[in-house]
Amino acid sequence: MIANNELVYVLHTRKYRETSQLVDFLSREAGRLRVVARGTRPSARVKKTATGPVLNPFQPFFASWRGRSDLKTLTGFEPAATVKMPQGEALYVGFYVNELLTRLLPEFIPNHDLFDHYAQLITILSHGVDMEPELRCFELRLLSELGHGINFCTNLEDGSAIIDELDYRYEPGEGFSRVSDHARRDIFAGSHLRAIEARQFDSVPVRQSAKRLIRSALALHLGNKPLHSRELYQQSRSSPGNAQ
């Protein structure tokens, strides 16, 4: 299989041998894939006087690769645009999104919508503006592209519509049902659910509900293994005395 000048984002890089890297790409036309990039790391032998492009995460590239096995060989790449590297908390968010994609997205299944959404999210991260609404939209999109979309329209029990004034309980993988008297966990106000469905994240309580809901929905697919990027974010919030 030969791919020429495909638009990709770098999700992650690992060192491989002395001067090479294993690079995880999110490609618009080929989906998620891994390539070997030979000689892309600086070494003591090759003294560089000027720097060439570096395969950094969150950067778009036009990349070419070939190979028959799952692990492809990178044959060329050049930057598709210069995107400012996300700074501060935006970096943690970026790590989180990349870890989600690496964990949940199957290899070699292209998805134009998801790719374009990812590109939009990365642009917002690089500007460091209000990231939360775009992140929640991306997570919802990822869930529905994986075939696990959340049905915000109907009450599971009787197929009736979700109503603003009532509270609902969320069953991951299933949907929403009316709150019974003894239920305590995974409860959401109908008005919040309708706001999330309309992707209106203006109010703080709606944002909190959306975060809780999506976390619960993702947990079903992530299994027992925790997301390291989420732990990192939580540790960054704790005080230095108990940083660990």
């Binding site: 999700l11 390291h228 990027s229 732990e231």
Partner: peptide, 14 residues
């Protein structure tokens, strides 16, 4: 490097 499972503890930030 969260994707590789390397957090603050592994690099001795404490």
């Amino acid at each position: 490097s969260p994707i590789d499972g390397i957090g603050p503890e592994e690099i001795g930030i404490n």
